[in-house]
Design a protein around this nucleic acid. Structure first.
Lengths: 226, 226
DNA sequence: CAAAAAAGAGAGCACTGCTCTTGCAATGGA
DNA sequence: TCCATTGCAAGAGCAGTGCTCTCTTTTTTG
């Protein structure tokens, strides 16, 4: 009887997961550049060539890890989204969740928001998971704007077309005035996290928690939350 | 006759420069991870072991390139600092210079603001050149604040100690209220640049110039410039 | 001019990603 | 049930890497 889930298919899933787990371990321990297919195979008691049955190249393994990292980060953001009721508090909570996940998984963060790996261009499979954090932030603003009397200053004329296109693309139910600020805040959030993570704040910012919380609050104000 | 600049010493300087130039070429062409000592040596017509007389390891070569990159970026920022008179215009000009340099030297940007290289920790020699852009931004705010009537909203109590320590460290002549915003804007600037450079804005932000200019203007407002 | 320091050349080690061939075992149709 | 097909593992091998030796040559220095 041929189930689509034969013993062999189940084994394949398990081995694939084991490879990713071991790769993630090495990634966390040494960073992406030292992630070696041979070392992963060795640790798993298989020969290196066997690993190529599961991932046709090192880059494919990295891509799998990248997708997982985006998903994990997105999940961390979504998990705290509804912990607060006030929009500003929700925004800050999400920012702090992003920071906390990143500090806990620095090498995975570097994989997705650090330098793109050598000559490597992210395949389309990564764009959807990559958007999750952004969608959470958009959602918070959307919910807040249902409330009364949230207005935005007019944009400079040169930016209006871009703002309207942007709004149509990423948040059709949001006023175009807020879309550039939202995209900017999204990028700036990762500027803050990246600087802390990659040591740029060493000998500069000491009380990281207070600093970040305040900066995240300012980002919230920048997208119109009060 | 022993000049401190013997023929050998001059040759050493030249060869060192040639190595860095070739390394920079490979860096620009292929990225840091594919920068190979052997390839550099090959291209220069020397054997790989000879190169170790100049740079004791690959990481030392990278460190030299990192310092040069910080200096080049800092110089680009300083070069435009005095092009405008209005503080906001000066701020925006510096931000745009940072962006322009980064877009023109993506791999060097990745070297200094992307993921730290494998197990590599930046030596102290890099901290001074790394600060140049930040100092330019601080200077703009300092100059602007000499002007009349620039005030800042009070900080939350939990942030006051950090703000005062920060102000004392990086800008003793600036009011503590502005120091956290300045540090945040500094990081956020590189968030914007990094997102554009590393493809995070693909299919999101189209009119990058207008978007960036507007975002940089908002950063300026965030540090009190009008 | 001789001793010392600096530089280059080449072999070699241990490692990497990846390919190819070979042998074995599970699968699924006749 | 038999047997061809398929999936997987193993091993050898290629070209490349960083880095360390030793040996020779060249330049500088006392």
């Amino acid at each position: 009887m041929s189930t689509a889930h034969s013993a062999r298919a189940r084994a394949r899933i398990e081995v694939t997961a084991a490879i990713k787990d071991e790769a993630r371990r090495q990634l966390a321990a040494e960073g992406a550049a030292k992630l070696s297919l041979r070392a992963v195979a060795r640790e798993l008691g298989m020969v290196s060539s066997a690993l190529y049955r599961y991932f046709p190249s090192r880059d494919d393994l990295l891509t799998a890890l990248i997708i997982d990292a985006y998903d994990a980060l997105g999940e961390a953001a979504e998990a705290v989204r509804d912990n607060a009721t006030q929009p500003v508090e929700r925004w800050i909570a999400v920012c702090e969740a992003v920071r906390a996940w990143s500090l806990a998984h620095p090498h995975e963060y570097a994989l997705i928001y650090g330098s793109p790996v050598p000559g490597y261009t992210a395949p389309d499979t990564t764009v959807q998971p990559a958007a999750r954090v952004g969608l959470v932030l958009i959602g918070i603003v959307r919910d807040a704007i249902r409330g009364p009397g949230v207005t935005f200053p007019p944009l400079p004329a040169e930016l209006r077309p871009e703002a309207e296109r942007l709004a149509a693309d990423i948040a059709p139910d949001l006023p175009p005035e807020v879309s550039p600020a939202l995209a900017a805040a999204w990028a700036q959030l990762f500027g803050l996290v990246g600087f802390e993570l990659f040591g740029q704040f060493n000998r500069v910012v000491e009380d990281r928690e207070s600093f970040f919380r305040h900066a995240a609050g300012q980002l919230a104000r920048g997208v119109g939350l009060r």
